[in-house]
């Protein structure tokens, strides 16, 4: 019998494979290491990210699900809640103790009942509705608030880039 973290990750993988949510594909990078996943997220329809497919990595801690995984986009992203290096900044990925941005409710934080699926769904909704209050990428936040056209333009360019279409 393997460790509980591993068993839980296997269960989640199975669940995600059997009943995948729309626009999300996720699974371990290799069968040897269930603690690193790769996810592909389709940009939500009706938003500036529509049509894009964004690859991301999920790194799970040894004590998952007691601690949250880390998520990082491996493509270029320009979004108020994504750091320049691709790290995703949403409350569901933060353990209740720490509050990097100082505004999150503990009710939105990580707890063991959350799952990969919920994280990815939250990320999709984050793509659709950025939270301009959180300044993971301040430039993006300001642009999203004040120059929406420009923001959409950049997002469209990113979408084309992820699809390999020259812009």
């Amino acid at each position: 019998m393997a460790g509980s973290a591993l068993r839980r990750l296997m269960a989640e993988y199975k669940q995600l494979t059997l009943d995948p949510p729309e626009g999300i594909v996720a699974g371990p990078v290799s069968e040897d290491n269930f603690f690193e996943w790769e996810a592909l997220i389709a940009g939500p329809e009706g938003t500036c990210f529509e049509g894009g497919v964004f690859p991301a990595r999920l790194l799970f801690p040894p004590d998952y699900p007691l601690s949250p995984p880390k998520m990082k986009f491996t493509c270029d992203m320009f979004h108020p809640n994504i750091f320049a290096d691709g790290r995703v900044c949403i409350s569901i990925l933060h353990a209740p103790g720490d509050d990097p941005m100082g505004y999150e409710l503990s009710a939105e934080r990580w707890s063991p009942v959350q799952s990969v699926e919920k994280i990815l769904l939250s990320v999709v909704s984050m793509l659709a509705e950025p939270n301009a209050e959180s300044g993971a990428n301040v430039d993006a936040a300001i642009m999203w608030r004040e120059r929406r056209e420009e923001f959409n333009e950049i997002a469209k360019r990113l979408v084309r880039k992820t699809l390999g279409i020259p812009s």
Binding site: A2, G3, A5, L6, D32, N33, F34, P62
Partner: peptide
């Protein structure tokens, strides 16, 4: 040894 717990 720490890896043991994570290895299938």
């Amino acid at each position: 040894v720490d890896f043991m717990e994570r290895s299938p």
